[in-house]
Amino acid sequence: MPKVVTREPMSVLERSFVPEIIRGLSTTIKHFFHAASGQNYHEKQHLWFLNKGNVTYNYPEDVRTYPKRYRGQHRLMLREDGNVRCVACMCCSTICPANCIHITAAESDDPSVEKYPASFVIDELRCIFCGFCVEACPCDAIRMDTGLHVQPFLDRNNAYYGRDLLMELGELSVAIQGGDKS
């Protein structure tokens, strides 16, 4: 049984196109004036009628404000004496689903610290920014709270971020090593 499609014949007014075109024009004109009145929808404008318009960010000039917990480029946190906080426990490189953290552990000179990372390399091109490394770390040594994009690379070798580069953005962390045991 073929399906019968009934088509509504157009009325005389519709066939003359004029009212329909005017209807369409009213829609486009509305959009025109909204977009013409304010460049950016997201910024709260001072005048009430400017709070409409397009939603595009003019990227290099207006940068979107990221949420507080945005996962950006990694950084390694520091101890009070400026050394790296990481104890080379390998938790992060173990949990990393992209297998992109490569750590070589070495014995530390400091008697209160067992190991430290002689090399700590993150392949930022492989990283999927899942944040697992931050969660796995027992001593708040790695964070992703820089709010930075990882920049595009022309050479793949530049994408390997070494320990010292990661420490450049690092700050003092006063979290108790290994968590609060009391």
């Binding site: 486009t28 959009h31 025109f32 909204h34 977009a35 013409a36 318009g53 397009n54 939603v55 595009t56």
Partner: peptide, 9 residues
């Protein structure tokens, strides 16, 4: 103008 009509910049 066409950009504004289509909510573009």
């Amino acid at each position: 103008q066409s950009a504004w009509i289509q909510n573009r910049v």
